[in-house]
Write a protein that binds this DNA or RNA. Structure first.
Length: 417
RNA sequence: GGAGGGAUGGCCGAGCGGACGAAGGCGAUAGUCUUGAAAACUAUUGUAUGUAUUCCAUACCGUGGGUUCGAAUCCCACUCCCUCCGCCA
């Protein structure tokens, strides 16, 4: 949620943002609504004040004057009730509209409508020459390391069994990443993966992306699609001392996504599945330092990919491709030989104060309190890293051999042979 | 799953219909004293909204409703925590 004060102080920014995001919003309607609710509240509060005055008199009044005061108080009480009902209505109307406005996009993010307008910042790593590269599923199925057919019998499409060395690699990757992140000040965290509705609203996944979220109706719980959700919600309603910022967490969790509306897209293997494991970085940050923090998180992502010798490019996500809560976002796309293109393996966003305001997380600095900034970024999305590792290190005979350095990290020298 | 008990400010803890934004203590901050420190004493000590940094108003005593002229205090529902029993990785 944006600061409603924008309607008063910085209309230009608001208008510019709405046009950059290609939205159609009636600003004047919102301005009026906001003014109206404030005016109504003021009236209601004045009446309330009157009521309290009389209440005090009643407490000390003698029996004679009491009766008159009581009837007077009674009618004021009714007025107050009616006035506040109106105020609540207006408030609700205003905020229902206001929360729908997405975050203000950073000045530095490129304009554009879709992911094809994203701006490539750099390319890193050597792409190996390959004749007819195989895709990860073909390679791993043959080696009995992945089984999607059995998984679809057991659980449906977009599920997979991982076996043997792939599982070994997964756990080595995770523990390697957690150690690295821990050295950089991230607290390793295993968060709950079932959360209440509120956490999803607070992080901006609800209401917009509600159709991507699995629901457990019996218990009013939802399966998270990323540990960003429980990590962000960790400090809900808290006031953090600015001296202790940034507070950094590295969350490991399984992630669940319905992938509604993606029929026919990425149907091969484990690129897009309903369930995968991920190490996620999350930072609660001093607002004036969030830009630096964003660069830092991006640099960590790059460091991990470089250590794994995965060729990648970094992309500055354009205005039209940003989610509601992001002010700026960098994606890293790894080279996927079988697709002859780069595909997303990590993503890091500066959500500025958008989530913090919804979750009511603030920072305290020498007496004054302000909203803080939150940022998130992928450290290791296990499935997609496995794909990149398998495909980029494949040989023509269907085996996969890793360099000594990579093998040291993942604990496996080769697949097959 | 069954049976009980509880939720008050940064923390502990009183209040159980009217002057309560809330006693008292601890902690924190500032001052006095001291060469310096400690101790002692004094003062301050939540958050948010309203064009409102010291004045004013309003809201907030787990959350949401209700009763009442008036609710931290009474009633209802929910959430969370604790104890005991059962079950369980």
């Amino acid at each position: 949620m944006l600061d409603p004060a924008l309607l008063k102080n910085d209309l230009e920014t608001l208008k510019l943002n709405i046009s950059r995001r290609n939205l159609n919003v009636d600003i004047d309607f919102l301005i009026n609504l906001n003014e109206e609710r404030k005016k109504l509240r003021f009236e209601a509060e004045q009446k309330r004040s009157e009521q309290k005055e009389i209440g005090k008199e009643i407490a000390t009044a003698d029996d004679k004057s009491k009766e008159g005061l009581l009837s007077q108080a009674s009618s004021i009480s009714n007025e107050v009730k009616a006035l506040f009902e109106k105020v609540d209505q207006k408030d609700e109307e205003f905020f229902n509209n206001w929360v729908k406005i997405p975050n203000i996009i950073s000045e530095t993010s490129p304009d554009g409508k879709s992911d094809s307008d994203n701006l490539e910042i750099k390319k890193i790593g050597n792409i190996k020459e390959m004749k007819n590269p195989r895709d990860h599923l073909e390679i791993a199925s043959k080696l009995n390391l992945i089984d999607v057919e059995k998984a679809s019998e057991v659980s449906g499409s977009r599920f997979a069994y991982l076996f043997g060395d792939l599982v070994k690699i997964e756990f080595n990757l995770v523990s390697w990443a957690l150690n690295k992140l821990s050295d950089k000040g991230f607290t390793p965290t295993v968060p709950p993966v079932l959360v209440r509705e509120n956490a999803l609203y607070g992080t901006g996944f609800f209401p917009d992306d509600a159709e991507q979220v699995y629901e457990i109706p019996n218990d009013d719980l939802f399966l998270v699609g990323t540990s960003e959700v429980p990590l962000a919600a960790l400090h809900t309603n808290e006031i953090l001392n600015i001296k202790n910022l940034p507070l950094r967490y590295a969350g490991f969790s399984t992630c669940f996504r319905r992938e509604a509306g993606t029929y026919g897209k990425d149907t091969t293997g484990i690129f897009r599945v309903h369930q995968f494991d991920k190490v996620e970085m999350f930072s609660f940050c001093d607002p004036v330092k969030s830009k630096e923090e964003h660069e830092f998180i991006l640099s960590v992502e790059e460091e991990l990919l470089q250590a794994l010798e995965i060729p990648y490019r970094v992309v500055d996500v354009c205005a039209g491709d940003l989610g509601a809560s992001a002010a700026k976002k960098f994606d890293i796309e790894a080279w996927i030989p079988s697709q002859n293109t780069y595909r997303e393996v990590t993503s890091c966003s500066n959500t500025t104060d958008y989530q913090a305001r919804r979750l009511n997380i603030r920072a305290k600095d020498e007496g004054s309190t302000s909203v803080l900034h939150t940022l998130n970024g992928t450290a290791i999305a296990v499935g997609r890293i496995l794909i990149a590792l398998i495909e980029n290190n494949q040989n023509t005979d269907g085996s996969v051999v890793f360099s000594d350095k990579v093998a040291e990290i993942i604990g496996v020298e080769q697949l097959g042979k």
